[in-house]
């Protein structure tokens, strides 16, 4: 049944340090690599060398700009994968029982042999952690590398999720959040780890460690540009700007006809 367990014995998850992530996308690549070649349906690509490449990924890196008033903006790279929520809305909406949260360690998984590919769980997830694979027609999501972390055929140091193992900056940490003495619990306590979209009531396990306090002087030391007196030369950043104009989304065919008719009304 897709009811959630009352309480999972352990709460395995990730602590992601936004102060350290450099946005290199190595975790994205290693995640795709492991999860394509290991258990379950591979993560397919559509039109990989054509004009509209697209693919299934379980981990993606966004980059945000944070700006207060006139202060220099801070750039934050933001990895996002399944947060293995305690109150996972994706599990309870599943009509087939393919989605489930494990009582023993809290990992949220999909049984791909039972999934009908209705996509409702992806709609129920506020974080965009689930993607329907167009080639297999089943839902794919982060497994917290369940086939690595308990895998006795791997050397001890490899028994952690592929994204954590590969991160060259050590921005991703794997551990048990139900143990207050674990490294991830301590990190989250010390750094004020935050939940994403707490108002959605999902009670995520994964914690994001916010960037540490920084002054404009630090930013200047990092970049060579600091404050309003030391801006980059005018015009130096928008050489390519004309090429970045949004492409008009004008529909064609029957939709185009409907569009033109409605515009004329």
């Amino acid at each position: 049944m897709t009811d959630l367990p009352d309480r999972s014995q352990r709460r395995l998850g990730l602590a992601i340090d936004l102060d350290i992530c450099v946005g290199c996308h190595a975790c994205v690549v290693s995640c795709k690599g492991w999860n394509t070649t290991a258990y379950g349906a591979p993560l397919s690509d559509s039109d990989p060398y054509g004009p509209n490449p697209s693919g299934t990924f379980l981990n993606r890196i966004h980059t945000f700009e944070v700006k207060t008033g006139d202060a220099t903006a801070t750039v934050v790279h933001f990895p996002k994968s399944c947060l293995h929520c305690d109150n996972a809305p994706c599990v309870t909406v599943c009509p087939t029982g393919a989605s489930y949260k494990r009582a023993e360690d809290g990992i949220v998984l999909v049984n791909e042999d039972h999934c009908i590919g209705c996509g409702l769980c992806a709609w129920a997830c506020p974080y965009g952690a689930r993607e329907l694979d167009p080639a297999e027609g089943v839902m794919k999501k982060c497994t917290l590398c369940v086939d690595r972390i308990y895998n006795e055929n791997l050397p001890e140091e490899d028994r952690e999720p592929a994204c954590v193992r590969t991160c060259p900056a050590n921005a991703r940490h794997f551990g048990d959040f139900s143990d207050p003495g674990s490294a991830v619990s301590r990190m989250s306590r010390d750094r004020g780890g935050v939940d994403l979209m707490p108002e959605q009531g999902t009670l995520p396990v994964n914690k994001y460690l916010p960037p540490r306090p920084r002054t404009d002087a630090d930013v200047g030391a990092d970049t060579g540009y600091g404050g309003p007196d030391n801006l980059p030369p005018a015009g130096s950043i928008d050489v390519l700007a004309p090429f970045l104009e949004p492409v008009a989304e004008t529909p064609s065919g029957i939709l185009g006809w409907i569009d033109r008719t409605l515009t004329r009304l």
């Binding site: 946005g23 994205v28 509209n52 490449p53 697209s54 693919g55 299934t56 990924f57 993606r60 890196i61 966004h62 980059t63 945000f64 700009e65 944070v66 700006k67 207060t68 008033g69 006139d70 202060a71 750039v75 996002k80 992806a122 993607e131 329907l132 167009p134 306090p213 920084r214 002054t215 404009d216």
Partner: peptide, 23 residues
Amino acid sequence: RTTATAGATRVRLLEPPHTGESY
């Protein structure tokens, strides 16, 4: 921040995770 913190803190997307479309 120690200086120039007047005004609300705003967050905006600088780079999306992929250049094309996704599911």
